[in-house]
């Protein structure tokens, strides 16, 4: 009986602590078969041609292009930067302004970008975000329409690049 009462008290204590501090002992659950946050495609073109085609497709889809940056730029000296990893950054300020009104934290994934990487065997990869999957991490249902629009923009750009 004595043991039972003590156990009951301890159990009650643990339950209460977990109720009041729901996140204290938990971590992000690992979702099996989670939808990927990024998408990639092998380019049929060489590195320079792929970069040129991405830049042109971005502009023709009504985005403003920022100066390109190497992925490693700023993290190491200019002579050590891998110049076969280029980030093409772009923005549609009207869409950005509207999206930030809906979700101010969106900056953690800004700006829109497409990364072009050349692997050791010469294969060129085009990698970009899966906007609809990534939008889910914000837990903001109002963001869905904007995310769908951005996903369509990426799809149109990629169609043009791979044409």
């Amino acid at each position: 009986m004595r043991i039972r009462i003590d156990r009951l008290l301890i159990t009650t204590f643990v339950v209460l602590v977990n109720l009041f501090i729901p996140n204290a002992f938990s971590a992000i659950p690992i979702e099996k078969n989670a939808e990927p946050f990024t998408l990639s495609v092998d380019s049929p073109y060489n590195f320079d041609e792929t970069v040129k085609r991405v830049q042109e497709a971005v502009i023709s889809n009504d985005f403003r292009v920022f100066p390109d940056r190497y992925l490693e730029q700023g993290l190491t000296d200019d002579f050590s930067v891998n110049e076969r990893q280029l980030v093409i950054r772009f923005c549609h300020f009207g869409k950005l302004y509207k999206a930030l009104k809906i979700e101010p934290r969106l900056g953690v994934v800004l700006p829109c970008k497409i990364t072009v990487l050349e692997e050791e065997d010469g294969q060129v990869q085009i990698i970009y975000i899966n906007a609809e999957a990534l939008a889910n991490v914000f837990d903001n249902k109002h963001l869905a329409t904007e995310a769908q629009g951005i996903a369509e923009n990426y799809s149109d750009i990629l169609d043009e690049v791979l044409l």
Binding site: P36, S40, V87, V108, L117, Q125, I127, Y128
Partner: peptide, 16 residues
């Protein structure tokens, strides 16, 4: 980027 090129769009890390 060597092991998981698919993470490239998240690199470098960003703080807003």
């Amino acid at each position: 980027t060597t092991k998981h090129a698919e993470l490239a769009p998240f690199l470098p890390f960003k703080i807003l």
